[in-house]
Design a protein around this nucleic acid. Structure first.
Lengths: 247, 247
DNA sequence: CCTCCTCCTTGATCATGATCATGGCGGACA
DNA sequence: TGTCCGCCATGATCATGATCAAGGAGGAGG
């Protein structure tokens, strides 16, 4: 595709410019001035939307880009040996996928769309180069990685010290919070992932996820119907999530 | 202390220059040319050695610097609520401590020396600024963070899918590998952490750590006497660590 | 409309590792 | 040299959540 078409293509397909993107206050260019944002904009590559189940990149394929989620959601799955998968993260709009591939030159997991999903592709060599002249961009990149580190540590705590109830409560309060920050209702949302995905992520069997969801429902904490979730008592749910001395 | 003393002080106390540091092939300035290394060297601050049990930085104190371990070892502990600690990492020489404090402006955990430990303090604002003109340094910093992300994911897998046996086997093979890379024997080493630390890190009760260590010993995999460890059969230990279909 | 298949729920049993309890070892210090 | 205290080992019991098993609900496609 000739470059001359790119401009038109972009505006036709979707609003693809950071300046008009509703996520710009959460996303990587968050701290940039308008003229800097244009420079950043220029290195971004559009991708055709992914359909549910399609992969953005595969484990062990060469690392070239990081991706900002624009709409939809993804999971990242690492396979080791035969059939033993570990779901390491879910990614929502404005979050960066692929940062853990920077060293080693290949992606350490496969990123799979959980629903129709659009992403902004950011070639890493160009991002790195641009970060030389844009300190705010560089800072934001450091912060994104640092934040992911902190969240991984939270996850490690969850996996090593929390009961099944606490894990699920954390999962829902966490999701609720992420939706709120993105301007969606923190009380009503649709899960894009299956129970199996949730269980895999939280280190629980599917059956356990089901059972505890049922219990939360009978306790009046949430109302769950398939993948539709209504949080009825967020405060109590937070209490359950942080309950101490359990286990 | 007047600045004029610093130069002398450095050379008297220890070899503190990266160029003469035996870790330079593993540490942050790894990819730098000699003249660039001098620039990097100039921003590093020496600290008095920490004694066992002393803290390098405390949870929630303001983030200012990252630290490269020079000798000894540290643990990082996050406290939540009352008395519920989570040990999130052990740090060996050449590793960077504090990267998870970059966003949020404070450290998310307390770093405690497990033995007499020396570190190089690297003020982050100066590091960031220097990374503008030294692409190799910047790249190395990105890679360090990315690597830590990948290792966190490995840890998440360990915590959510591995049995107690596999966890301990992983812990020992991991340590062995880290010692090897640093030029120490991968078969004989001294643990700088207590059984309680190991258990906390791996999500196991102290008793379980003890029991399994005993079993490994009776199986001829290792020989353990207090904190002195001899790995007798590294291959089998690796097999145990990666054993599939367990649990 | 029916069928198939995936995803989810629920019940019964079992196993792993936590917890509780006790005792031993070894180093620091008087 | 004896005592104390932190760290470690080991035994007995228990609880959480995994596993095995079966069945239901809902959606896609004929």
């Amino acid at each position: 595709m000739p470059d001359s078409l790119t401009g038109r293509r972009r505006s036709v397909l979707h609003e693809t410019r950071c300046q008009t993107c509703s996520l710009s206050s959460l996303c990587l260019p968050l701290a940039l001035e308008i003229q800097d944002m244009d420079q950043f904009d220029a290195i971004i590559r559009r991708r055709a939307p992914l359909k549910k189940g399609e992969t953005l990149f595969r484990q062990d394929s060469p690392f070239t880009s990081v991706y900002a989620v624009r709409s939809g959601s993804l999971k990242q799955v690492t396979t080791e040996g035969s059939g033993d998968d570990q779901l390491t993260n879910f990614y929502l709009p404005s979050e960066l996928v692929g940062l853990d591939g920077i060293d080693e030159e290949h992606y350490p997991g496969t990123a799979v769309a959980l629903e129709t999903t659009t992403v902004c592709e950011i070639p890493f060599d160009r991002l790195d180069h641009l970060s030389e002249s844009l300190p705010e961009l560089r800072g934001q990149l450091y912060r994104s990685m640092s934040k992911e580190l902190r969240e991984d540590r939270r996850m490690m705590r969850l996996l090593s010290r929390k009961t099944a109830d606490q894990r699920l409560a954390s999962f829902f309060t966490g999701l609720s919070d992420r939706f709120r920050r993105r301007g969606y209702s923190p009380y009503s949302f649709r899960l894009s992932m299956s129970r199996a995905d949730i269980g895999n992520y939280l280190g629980l069997a599917v059956e356990t996820v089901s059972r505890i969801l049922g219990r939360f429902q009978s306790q009046g904490l949430v109302e769950v119907s398939g993948r539709e979730v209504h949080i009825l008592d967020l405060e109590s749910l937070i209490l359950v999530a942080e309950e101490e001395g359990a286990r």
